[in-house]
């Protein structure tokens, strides 16, 4: 009897490890087959040569990379993508933050109702929502008419960067709100009250207490929205009128229309690099916040 615990105690760590390995194996395999291999293929294509008409010549060349990084059009495209995504992320943050804060403070069924309301756009495809925006912002649409009604000349809102901005911001807001809510865990209403009783005005308590405490949520939301903005192509395609050149739309064009897979792969790897940079920035921000 007494020997049994000793034996099992000696074996348990090994058994636990084996179980862990067994449990991790399927997901590891799926990751290798579903993620690592395609990425590896993508990287390989980026060093192949595209032939006229969409063929791929299986040689090793740097020409996609040198061509891309030496071309002012593509450099501009990369900058555009990064700046538009940053701008959209910022807009989504500014618009989502008060909503998330209100949701965080709401309680009971009211909160559930509002949360469902916030999430509900995610149940509709981005394509449908984008067409909705096209109808709203179109030349004869309500927004333009309203601005005209006030006696002002409306700026072009559709088929240009403005449209992309508006559409992307709205499409990313639910993600931002959810990320913010997830990050608002540390925000205890008592802490705000403490600030207020110590003489902080609502603005001061926001600046000095609420904002710093919600910073992790802000960082998470921004990372998520930035990544989604860089990689979204449906909305820029539909609302950009062919005037807005972004990495994602260019990848689509190169892969689907021009059939230049090596160039499309190179651009895709570049997007991954940008994501990597965003992750590094995110963890640096988190470290500073801690």
């Amino acid at each position: 009897m007494t020997a049994v615990p000793a034996v099992s105690a000696g074996r348990r760590p090994m058994g636990g490890q084996q179980v862990a390995v067994a449990l991790l194996l399927p997901i590891a395999l799926i990751n290798v087959v579903g993620f690592m291999l395609p990425i590896f293929n993508l990287a390989r294509y980026s060093f192949n040569r595209a032939t006229v008409g969409g063929g791929i010549e299986n040689v090793l060349t740097l020409q996609n990379w040198t061509g891309l990084l030496g071309d002012p059009f593509y450099l501009q495209l990369i900058l555009n993508s990064v700046f538009v995504s940053l701008g959209v992320t910022l807009c989504a943050l500014i618009l989502s933050y008060p909503i998330a804060l209100y949701l965080h403070r709401a309680s009971g069924s009211w909160r559930t109702f509002l949360t469902v309301l916030v999430i509900s756009p995610l149940l509709t495809s981005a394509v449908v929502r984008t067409y909705g925006w096209i109808a709203i912002l179109a030349e004869e649409g309500p927004v333009v008419s309203a601005i005209r009604g006030m006696g002002l000349t409306p700026p072009p809102l559709m088929f240009n960067i403005n449209g992309v901005f508006i559409g992307l911001t709205e499409i990313l807001m639910p993600y931002m709100i959810l990320a913010l809510l997830a990050g608002f865990g540390r925000l205890d209403p008592r802490v705000e009250e403490a600030a207020r009783t110590l003489g902080a005005t609502p603005w001061q308590s926001f600046r000095r207490v609420i904002l710093p405490l919600t910073a992790p949520g802000i960082a998470l939301g921004c990372l998520l929205c930035f990544v989604l903005a860089v990689s979204s192509f449906i909305t820029p395609k539909l609302m950009g009128g062919g005037r807005v050149f972004l990495l994602a739309t260019e990848i689509y064009d190169q892969a689907i229309v021009t059939l230049n897979w090596p160039l499309a792969s190179t651009l895709s790897i570049l997007v991954l690099v940008i994501f990597g940079a965003a992750l590094v920035a995110y963890s640096a921000v988190l470290k500073r916040l801690d």
Binding site: T51, G53, G54, G55, I56, L259
Partner: peptide, 10 residues
């Protein structure tokens, strides 16, 4: 036709 050319080449 132009995509068919690429396919033929491959």
């Amino acid at each position: 036709v132009s995509v068919a050319k690429a396919a033929t080449d491959e």
